[in-house]
Nucleic acid binder design. Sequence first.
DNA 1: GTGAAAGCGCTAACAC
DNA 2: GTGTTAGCGCTTTCAC
Lengths: 339, 339
Amino acid sequence: LSVTLKDIARETGLSLATVSKYINGGVLKEANRAAVERAIRETGYTVNEYARSLKSNRSRSVGVIIPELNNVFITQIISQVEKILQGHGYSIIICDCHTDEKRECEAVRFLLGKMVDGIINMPVCQDGRHLKPALSRKVPVLLIDREIPGLRDADSVHIDNAAAADAAVSYLLEKGHRSIGIIVGPQEIYTSRHRLEGYRRALTSHGLGESGGGLVQYSDYTVQGGYESMRRLIQAQNGMTAVFVTNYEMTLGAVIAANESGIRLPDDLSLIGFDNTDLSRVTRPPLTIVTQPLEEIGTQAARILLERFARGGKAGVPVSVTLPAELREGGSVAELKRR
Amino acid sequence: LSVTLKDIARETGLSLATVSKYINGGVLKEANRAAVERAIRETGYTVNEYARSLKSNRSRSVGVIIPELNNVFITQIISQVEKILQGHGYSIIICDCHTDEKRECEAVRFLLGKMVDGIINMPVCQDGRHLKPALSRKVPVLLIDREIPGLRDADSVHIDNAAAADAAVSYLLEKGHRSIGIIVGPQEIYTSRHRLEGYRRALTSHGLGESGGGLVQYSDYTVQGGYESMRRLIQAQNGMTAVFVTNYEMTLGAVIAANESGIRLPDDLSLIGFDNTDLSRVTRPPLTIVTQPLEEIGTQAARILLERFARGGKAGVPVSVTLPAELREGGSVAELKRR
DNA sequence: GTGAAAGCGCTAACAC
DNA sequence: GTGTTAGCGCTTTCAC
């Protein structure tokens, strides 16, 4: 079945070493070169990457561990990472751990078995325990989207979540809103905590105290969760004039809930969503949203990893890149008249 | 850095063979078993999959080649495939070829180098040339979403595109529409051709001739393309009362165009979209759409491949699974009164 | 139960 | 330029 180097050596009458050398960019006598090329073409030979990696101890592949493959936010980043790495001769092996810590842990071991040169991880497990095996083998780890406080030796790329939330809420405050709801994700998650923190910071710096009346809805980053939280906010009758929803899925859910309740944006309620510009454009009016620079996150992640590879084993200080998010104005926020 | 079988053999005073046997499910004397386990735990040993595969000539991995990673339609299928294969001890290596035939071709060779046990492909190259190297090595190939007419020896899973389009257009006809526009994708693409065919079939079987007046818009399966086609249809002033948009991205574009033109669905125009239920729910009214059974496509794909693996080398006839799509009623189609 | 040894396909000294 | 050779880490007879 499988055709090996040996086959094409026999085929051409050359030695293993010579053929191998040619394949790895060496130079042969013209006649030999032609013979090798012909043999490769005719037999459909491809290098056995396993054998190669076994020898060279580098696989030219990086592992990517994500909570969910079926998620535009994530795939947009990964797509960019893949594009850049591929351009440098690296391939990626994706492990979807389905937001399950145990699977995430297994993924690390699995990838180490595949001899990946590095691991990119949007972590589910929030204490970073699962990454220990990689770190102890000096396999570079890069976290995206979520940092793990206290985890030494891992690079990270993420946005300034608190600043993004602060900006969104401040924007609402400047438009005259005073009773502002927020739908946040699970507080174990790094991004959730920081987005809530930004919300509070904005209120405080505008001289408003902690908001009561159920204005803070703790949810779970899912469509269904956003939907339910939005319904609760609507029913609470707390004088809320605006709501800030802090991830894509929940924004989706919140908009659906608003539609079903017959609430018109922004006449009856102002709303700022999060992520994904496609969605924000199909609603009428288009949604005002906080958008993350997904491509840039991917680009930075790939860049940092490639630089580490280039440096070889030499450790170097962990890098942490914080990117700004952007508030993109749509038409879902009303300006309240000053009283 | 890396800890190997040899290390743990030395550590425990046992031989390579014994340790290897244990790792692969063999039975040891209790004391030895404990020693091995301890050593593995303490050193953080993991099997080197490269060495193992080199020996066993199976990698327990399958390659997945897709046009675009950043696409919900695709990731939803792949996510399901991954889940099932993972459950059977297989991992997937994803290659995003960015809708580029050359990259797709390279991906096949790359995956063969990785010794994948099978390849799942949503093909970009429409003549299947790129798959030859895999087929000639007897590596099972399974096509999803798009068939390649004339390609022997590849399994395939897809929906009945013509029937789906026929059903959608027939639905519009039954609601009294007579001037129905369609936005289709590139005619080189299998699904595009069949969806257009279904449209024509529905018109014919209702006694309507080929529609003129620019009612058939050839586009490119992108948001921008859908947007532009929709604008053209609107400006054509051809008495069109309904439009059928034949993929997710173009549906997005078409809805945006309608919104921007101040056209209300379904009062001013009826619309049937394609794929993705999330989107269809955020618009007001919710969109009537054709939805594909994405999970089922993934499930079938994984199942067929696993069965092939189980059968071993023995070829067996290529399998072709055709799944039905579903017309999900929203509120974007108006009933025209009979005249 | 356990061990010795051959070899999977490739690369990288090192000689010629 | 080309060939010889020694392993990379593992599995797998085949002895003991």
